[in-house]
Write a protein that binds this DNA or RNA. Structure first.
Lengths: 336, 336
DNA sequence: GTGAAAGCGCTAACAC
DNA sequence: GTGTTAGCGCTTTCAC
């Protein structure tokens, strides 16, 4: 700030060469004579020179930065996806600028605007909602890939998702195989992902001839949502022996509701979640779940984006990864 | 990218005015005649003009950006601190650029370098380790505040922390008040924060005349660490009736170890953690803990940083917040 | 191999 | 009020 940082010019002066040679030395060391190179480097070190990204981006007309919008930083799965994104992005010589979304659509669109003003070369959006400001990106402004939003396809964006319908079926099938028939579903609300999971649940129930047993209780993708929905389920006369909860966070809430209700998991009622958040693996939770390959989804998103940046005319790609069942301690064979 | 974005010049041409008037119109609308203003705005809208942050930062010689380094994005408390930081930073008209640290010190220093190259006006570091690249920041390069690292003081940086020693005493006192005497401590490793919490534990035990009962078992700030440490504790002949675990994540691991050991919480052994992570409040966990005011720590850090940016000569400040006890379901009066 | 000069998009005096 | 003119720090032809 105050003692404004040394510039390429200062380095040049100190090394007794021209600005452009310093610039060259920084980017193509092999095209500069060894002697000058060392003296330039010495000067740079002595001065504590650090390139100014703003100036370089301006001259380059590119930023080597990709923007990441995380809608729900509080859901632990976000961290895992982010880690995957970062690893891959870094490996490609880019770096990430991460902003968080929020319930406030205006704020969220503002964040996206900022990212765009910073000339990010691409955008990765992690979350279930369609961000307000994403329209701009969609309008061909900036390559964008959406993680975990299945309807992205219809908007012409690249996307990475897991097959929610198929995953939900896996959940039901697992329960079915354990002998459960009265299987309830706690929903994740009215967003696309939640709807798909519900669809998978219903489809699986139907295909097992359990149409009459279909029972959905309204929840949300939060601890609280799972808790409330499960209380509803337990209060019904249906005597569910198993519950498929829309996501892991909600499933943890479900466990609490069940305990409060005086029943045991999995002896009295089995519970299966969805997502595969690391915390579900915590020994004191031991949640059976349908796990999304979170880190690779992040990495794949980065790959897809980088490809698209390389070739903007490339048609949008949709990677739909298969989730997998992880059996832990909250599901068991039906007891009666 | 390809169809390079419209610039201020394009807007000027379309509106039939000069570049500088457009620039003025964007920043001080009231100093431009209404007629021109509207026509400029119309032109900007029509063109889909968006200011180029790189150009502006270069000309302004400031970025209105503050960099945030999060060392452990996987610890859920990070998200809460980040939220606090973001809210406050945004409210001040700045925005944040967030990068994640990692075990790899070189990568971490690289991330800090990037932030610095981007001309961030300040740095907030969230985590327990002293990042390699922080030296540069310390050398007066860039105002920096450290969250959760008590030794920051000696390095001349601003810092926000909670009083770990005092918090640990609170934990022990709570247990003591419940009648516990054989209180074990699962440590968080050898970092400063863990050491302080251990110090507080020992001090409290001493002051209660329980010096002979002091028993520390080696753990870490992770689920796994708490799990292993607790198994050690339970295997000892000390018959601990209560355990103070170095942080919440580890405490959750402790719960698992205790369950595996065939004991109940809190009937057979009480457990108290530290941090106040939101997940500890999840009903199926209900962890008693010493809660740090995470969101306000983030907000305070942002405030401190902004102040320092405003007045770089300001002496470093250290805000040491008092944590508070949150009693939930994992502690109860000693039974025998 | 090296340097001079132009320009990236924007801001900020400074004149008109 | 409004336009002109210099840069901000860096990259990049293009001659030498």
């Amino acid at each position: 700030m105050a003692p404004s940082r040394p510039t390429i010019k200062d380095v040049a002066a100190r090394a007794g060469v021209s600005k452009s040679l310093v610039s060259l030395a920084m980017r193509a060391p092999d095209r500069v004579s060894p002697a000058r190179l060392t003296s330039i480097r010495a000067a740079a070190d002595a001065l504590g020179y650090r390139p100014n990204a703003a100036a370089r981006n301006l001259a380059d007309r590119r930023s080597f930065t990709i923007g990441v919008l995380v809608q729900d930083l509080h859901n632990p799965i976000s961290a895992e996806v982010i880690a995957g994104v970062q690893r891959q992005v870094r490996a490609s010589g880019y770096h990430t600028m991460l902003v968080t979304g929020s319930a406030d659509a205006d704020l969220e669109r503002g964040e996206i605007e900022k990212l765009l003003e910073f000339q990010v070369e691409g955008l990765i959006i992690i979350g279930h909602r369609m961000p307000a400001g994403a329209r701009a990106a969609i309008d061909g402004e900036c390559p964008t890939v959406i993680i975990s939003r299945a309807e992205a396809g219809i908007m012409g964006l690249d996307s990475i998702s897991n097959d929610d319908v198929s995953g939900a079926r896996m959940a039901v099938n697992h329960l079915y195989d354990l002998g459960h028939r009265r299987i309830a579903h706690i929903t994740g609300g009215s967003n696309q992902v939640a709807l798909l999971r519900r669809t998978g649940y219903e489809a699986a129930m139907n295909s097992h001839g359990l149409t009459a047993n279909i029972a959905c209780y309204e929840g949300a993708f939060t601890d609280e949502g799972g808790y409330r929905g499960t209380h509803l389920a337990l209060a019904s006369p249906n005597e569910h022996s198993a519950i498929f909860v829309a996501n892991d966070l909600a499933a943890v809430g479900a466990l609490a509701a069940i305990a409060e209700n005086g029943r045991r998991v999995p002896e009295d009622v089995s519970v299966i979640g969805y997502d595969g958040m690391a915390l579900g693996a915590l020994r004191s939770i031991g949640l059976t779940t349908i796990a999304q390959p979170l880190a690779s989804m992040g990495a794949d998103a980065a790959d897809l984006l980088l490809q698209r940046i390389g070739d903007p005319s490339r048609p949008p790609g949709h990677v739909n990864l298969e989730p997998r069942l992880i059996t832990r301690n909250t599901t068991s064979a039906v007891s009666r």
